[in-house]
Design a protein around this nucleic acid. Structure first.
Length: 140
DNA sequence: GCCAACGTTGGC
DNA sequence: GCCAACGTTGGC
């Protein structure tokens, strides 16, 4: 399966990228939205994931990777929900704010802009590279 | 505090 | 099966 790129959101007060760096690995569970769940299902081992902070920050702060693809969410009592395991790759040299994304024609179409409730979404390879490399000033 | 953009629920 | 009302999330 070809590699894909995604973006996940987290409230930094609940679980931040710094927490992921500290833990070295985490279970990404608790997703209760069908669209987000379907996106989780598309992610395979080794896929890179942008890590976005919601709330006061509203910015992409780091890159993570999938270390274990989707499996039934252990935190779900009922229903068809998925979790997966994430590990940190590196923090972005320069975080990219939502305002910056909204003001950039190349990124204006990202689901992040209009579908504010969606917590897991695909990102095209071109956009991913543009965000990480050009805007984020980060080399993988 | 309000609004936008969903998803869910329940009456019909 | 439709859709109005309500709930939720996240941004402004």
């Amino acid at each position: 399966m070809p590699k894909s790129h995604h973006l996940v959101k987290s409230e930094p007060g609940t679980y931040s990228f710094a927490d992921l760096m500290r833990d070295e690995k985490t279970v990404w569970d608790g997703i209760r939205n069908p669209t987000a769940r379907n996106n989780l299902r598309q992610m395979t081992k080794g896929d890179l994931v942008l890590f976005y902070h919601t709330g006061n920050e509203k910015q992409i702060v780091g890159i993570a990777k999938v270390v274990k693809p989707a499996y039934p969410d252990p935190s779900a009592d009922e229903g068809d929900w998925l979790a997966l395991d994430l590990a940190p790759v590196k923090a972005l040299a320069k975080p990219i704010t939502l305002a910056q994304i909204k003001s950039d024609k190349k990124l204006l179409h990202l689901p992040l802009v209009k579908m504010s409730r969606l917590s897991v979404m695909p990102i095209g390879p071109v956009e991913f590279e543009y965000i990480v490399g050009k805007l984020g000033g980060t080399k993988l």
